[in-house]
Amino acid sequence: MTFTNALREKPSETVMRDHEPGSKAEKQTLDYLFSVTYEELRRLASTVKRNDASSTLNPTALVNEAWLKLVKSPPFETTSPLHFKRIAARAMRQVLIEAARRRNAGKRGGQVIFAGVDLAVTEIAFGGQELLALDEALQELEQLEPRQAMLVESRFFGGLDVLETAELLEVSEATVHREWRAAKAWLKHRLRQ
């Protein structure tokens, strides 16, 4: 009797990872990742606020916690931690901006007024209007220098550190330091105008 080998005996070409966004399917996946991350961040944020007043609502911690919760679920399994943080930074920005906008709408009868140089004391403590103004300025920066805007968003809203940001943008840490400094000065100046 001849014992033949079945097809299983042979390995095959391994898959190629698809990183580059652009296709419709990838956009859908991204949309899905974003939507789930957003919900998880919101849920986490709401549990923090309910627990005790002294705990800080730190975006970095929230993003990390969201990552820990979501990492084992497809399609997050194929998402690198860095890529996830990038998505989470965007989600975090959306959560906060949306919340600030609503709160502002509640206070001002639906009219959004951006913060000027002389903020009322209560508004400084609240910070919501400054946040909305920052969002506006950041949108302007996105038009001019999308990568720099990504840097600000990732660092400020996603809590990525310099090393992570460097990896994300594929530049050196020194470049991140310099770009961050320049972007910050430009944005701060913009907020005063």
């Binding site: 944020a45 730190n58 975006p59 906060l96 910070g127 919501g128 946040l131 701060k188």
Partner: peptide, 15 residues
């Protein structure tokens, strides 16, 4: 400014 600090306090206030 907002950009010099971290987001925690603002996030807390807003949320």
């Amino acid at each position: 400014s907002l950009l010099d600090g971290d987001l925690s306090q603002v996030a807390r206030n807003i949320l």
